[in-house]
Nucleic acid binder design. Sequence first.
DNA 1: CGATTCGTTGACATGCTTCAAACTTCGTGG
DNA 2: CCACGAAGTTTGAAGCATGTCAACGAATCG
Lengths: 250, 250
Amino acid sequence: MQTQANIHSIVQQCNICESRGGCLGLQLLDSEEVQHQLSQSKRINRKGEHLFRAGEESDAFFVVRSGSIKSYLVTEDGEEQVLGFYLPGDVFGLDTTESQQRMSSAIILETTSLCRFPHAYLADKAQGANLLKITAEQMQRDHNLVLMLARKDADGRIASFLDDLACRYRSRGYSASAFLLSMSRQDIGCYLGLAVETVSRTLTRFQECGVLQVNRREVEILDHDTLRRIAGTRVNSVMDCSETVELKSV
Amino acid sequence: MQTQANIHSIVQQCNICESRGGCLGLQLLDSEEVQHQLSQSKRINRKGEHLFRAGEESDAFFVVRSGSIKSYLVTEDGEEQVLGFYLPGDVFGLDTTESQQRMSSAIILETTSLCRFPHAYLADKAQGANLLKITAEQMQRDHNLVLMLARKDADGRIASFLDDLACRYRSRGYSASAFLLSMSRQDIGCYLGLAVETVSRTLTRFQECGVLQVNRREVEILDHDTLRRIAGTRVNSVMDCSETVELKSV
DNA sequence: CGATTCGTTGACATGCTTCAAACTTCGTGG
DNA sequence: CCACGAAGTTTGAAGCATGTCAACGAATCG
């Protein structure tokens, strides 16, 4: 029970995973291991550093505690394709080849702290159900990205992107109407399959319409209803973000 | 050992999963269960039938034995977005929400036979490693689709699509230069984020260039090198399809 | 055999990319 | 601390690839 107390004190510092039904560490690891693992897994990383690169051996996945991460692919001719951005509470790093190599690269966009979970624990503890749940989130993200790329114009993609960010911030207890973009216009364009200029122009136009206020990385959404209307159709998701808005006040 | 003999005779009828390192059933299920499961999982389905729809309870995933399957999303306004096509040997149906609901719909494109694997066996047997391997394939497909949608023009998408099909057919022992499309132009366009007319025009132009020969659903690739050149950049995949070209002659 | 779906082709409109240039911010070394 | 260069952002003009609209032919199905 003494161990339990220590675990509790460690976990209490981290409210990130509450919307997931509790700390992943507590779910995945034995009580005795939690203290050691979690204490060494809080790593502060600096902007621009790579967490891992495609092709490297994949021995762990991560949960964002603070900051943000960019996930991307590198094509044969060296160009990059952004796959997504990960905010506090997001799980990433589970996309590995069957030979346990990273399928994508991950780079730190700003000062970031992470929880690190070795794959070994997953395989050993055989958390089949947990794994399904987590990969489901990754796939849902992929599906939404595909939908945007294939069916939406520039306005729809930018609006969806901002709405998604706002939605994710709100579900984690941050403001949904005002936030700082941690990624560059270049990254946004690369993510949405648009030229940098188109991103810039669209944001400017949104501002002129009174939908939002933009100043470099600062974004304030003034008319969320209109933004959503522009964002248009979404996947008939069962995992609606509005379900996880309420935070448990434990 | 008598059971082993029976299993062997059943599995021998199905060479589909050889490139995966053997029958999934043998990997996932206990020997005693294999015979019963596999014998009842070979289901013949007819064109146009739905295997499952998004939102339904997800209790199993599938392996294509013959025929082909279209996976798609339905948006809020009722339009569909094709996520991919599954050929013999492909695993699909693992994209479920955390509440075990289907994230996508699956419809049968032609007479098709499938192996069905209940999720319950995965969770019970806790095949963490196996699950990772299979979800890795799904994610690899998603990444490639995203890459196509975000960075390639119509020519590149169509060429990539055909090259991918050829590659998958070859890896399964079929001809890579001549095959029948099981999906409509509408489906291809929906998959690649293009209008039907663009698909049709592009195929016609490819034919005029002597790259391929098309007649409705019949496709023959005449100049695979040029096709690949048009397809252009691909993900630096560690799972290169050329690795699985050789079939074991067991 | 008629009706419907599927595929092809043409003309036109337009949204996005590309190219170019100016401005701002940031980082780094003098 | 300032200066300089590099990188990020914005804006404009022009070209083009793709979508849209429309019509027709071909195949499929009942």
